[in-house]
Write a protein that binds this DNA or RNA. Structure first.
Length: 485
RNA sequence: CGGGAUGUAGCGCAGCCUGGCUAGCGCACCUGACUGGGGGUCAGGGGGUCGCAGGUUCAAAUCCUGUCAUCCCGACCA
């Protein structure tokens, strides 16, 4: 047994994080019943508990999209092959990962259909029909959908053949508006992920080699996971006029000229669920931030004597009070399990607060609350309980964010010395910030030497000065490097 | 897609090298009783085409061939 931070006497079936992070991750996914493997290669079943987390993430983002003037729509799963191939870089980028439908209704199709790997092509095609005038702009649409990419190596939530996401696709009158939208969404992503998932992210621009196939520029949010590797948690692309030209999306402008629209696209996926697991989880399992926790509080009644007549009614009463206060609560009144078993089980599932109530508590008119994040146990009076719980949940949310920020900062180093760069990547994995000349050759060589890639380059960073960490050319940007998922 | 490993009950494994009675163990599951504030105890019980398909053999979980899946390490990606 490797060291773990679990209290003595704990039995779980989870590999300790320090022993094998990857195994730990898979154990948590399975034991917390977030997802399971399906008979289809690379495809997972998202189980109810995992899906509930995804639904809460969806709601959090959806609310923000709508508040910024976006509308939801639904576009088809199938795209004629000829449409995908219209934008040259786009095809080249996605062709190797595409699944085709070649037969339908017992006959071979005249034109193969692509199962969408992303929907720029179909949105572009429809936008060409819908847009005539500058008065039709901007178009701000989003869809919640599944997409398919034939990945060679898959892992639940982080990379699966089919995955769920949202993809926003917008069209604008000017280049400035397109860029403004791209950055607005980037900021929205950062705010949503930090507020709701307690996942601090670094925002910035991708290097050319990492940008979206067909985009002018790609921005991303990058988070640091518990093992020091970075996860791309969301991307926002400025498509320029590339797709507008490929799909002939034109409008007549205020000055009567005919112009191509300026496009953007952006997405976050079920990968975020994987990020939540890897950023907050510990050796006892999952830790779910309260704002996206399917159950924020689990009530465990202590069965003693005639508890069914004494403890249980009180537990129901508290449950109802919490529901009325807008708290997501579950009362675990199963008789087949002991309290101790339930404690472990709900910790494994990451429920932020456990509420124990037994005969002793009823005598004292209080309950015992246990925090998942700090493991503190605190007696709290029944009087005013919902308010106290809401405050605690908020505190847990903030604590998780602060902890993740501290971890990220602790694992972020700076250097302009290449040897040191290599040692940093070897020693304690994390972000290494270093000046970069902007050449793809240097970027590739750094990756070959250290496995680290440029995650992104912060937007408002001052020009770094000096020379590239690897060559002698003047530095063009301050790049955030890390090994990534 | 290259390199490595593994598929035996829901999970974790033994058995395979050296073929041979009815395929085992721990946990989980079911029934009952006693229990219950950090994964309880006792008693009884259910669950397997040994990943799949061929082959060798009187006989295959075991040997051979193929295939599929999963995991790990690389090259590609939300």
């Amino acid at each position: 047994m490797a060291k773990s931070d679990k209290p003595e006497g704990f039995v779980t079936e989870i590999t300790p994080r320090s022993q094998d992070f990857s195994r730990w991750y898979l154990d948590v996914v399975r034991r917390a019943e977030l997802a399971d493997y399906s008979p289809v290669k690379g495809c997972m079943v998202i189980r109810p508990y995992g899906y509930a987390i995804w639904e809460l993430i969806q709601q959090a983002f959806d609310k923000r999209f709508k508040a910024t003037g976006h509308q939801n729509a639904y576009f088809p799963l199938f795209i004629p092959e000829s449409l995908l191939t219209k934008e040259a870089e786009h095809v080249e980028g996605f062709a190797p990962q595409v699944a085709y439908v070649t037969h339908g209704g017992g006959e071979q199709l005249e034109e193969k259909l692509v199962v969408r790997p992303t929907s720029e092509a179909i949105f572009g095609t429809m936008y060409a029909k819908w847009i005539q005038s500058w008065r039709d702009l901007p178009i701000l649409l989003n869809q919640w959908a599944n997409v398919v990419r034939w990945e060679k190596v898959t892992r639940p939530f982080l990379r699966t053949t089919e995955f769920l996401w949202q993809e926003g696709h917008t069209a604008h009158e000017t280049a400035e508006e397109g860029e403004a939208e791209t950055r607005k969404i980037l900021a929205l992503y950062k705010e949503a992920v930090e507020t709701e998932l307690a996942m601090p992210v670094v925002t910035g621009q991708k290097s050319d080699s990492e940008k979206f196939a067909g985009a002018l520029r790609t921005y991303s949010i990058e988070a640091l996971m518990g093992d020091g590797r970075a996860l791309q948690a969301g991307t926002s692309h400025n498509l320029g006029q590339n797709f507008a030209k490929a799909f002939d999306i034109t409008f007549q402008a205020r000055d009567k000229s005919v112009q191509h629209v300026w496009g953007t696209s952006w997405g976050v996926s079920t990968r975020l669920v994987g990020g939540v697991i890897m950023i907050h989880g510990d050796d006892s399992g999952l830790v779910v931030p309260p704002r996206i926790a399917p159950y924020q509080v689990v009530i465990v009644p202590i069965p003693r004597g005639n508890w069914q007549e004494t403890v249980l009614p009180k537990a129901h009463e508290i449950q109802q009070q919490l529901i009325d206060a807008g708290v997501r609560v579950m009362l675990d009144d199963r008789d087949a399990y002991t309290p101790g078993w339930k404690f472990s089980e709900w910790e494994l599932r990451g429920v932020p607060l456990r509420l124990e109530i037994g005969p002793k508590d009823i005598e004292k008119a209080s309950v015992l609350l246990a925090r998942r994040d700090t493991r503190e146990k605190l007696p709290v009076p029944m009087e005013g309980l919902p308010g106290a719980i809401r405050a605690l949940l908020e505190d847990i949310q903030q604590t998780l964010l602060a902890r993740a920020v501290a971890f990220r900062d602790d694992r972020t180093q700076r250097t302009s010395n290449y040897e040191e760069f290599g040692q940093m990547m070897e020693g304690r994995p994390g972000f290494v910030v270093a000046p970069w000349c902007g050449s793809a050759a240097c970027e590739a060589q750094i990756k070959a030497d250290t496995q680290a890639t440029i995650r992104n380059m912060p937007l408002d960073a001052e020009a770094p000065g000096g020379v590239c960490v690897r060559c002698d050319q003047p530095a063009q940007a301050e790049a955030w490097f890390a090994k990534s998922y």
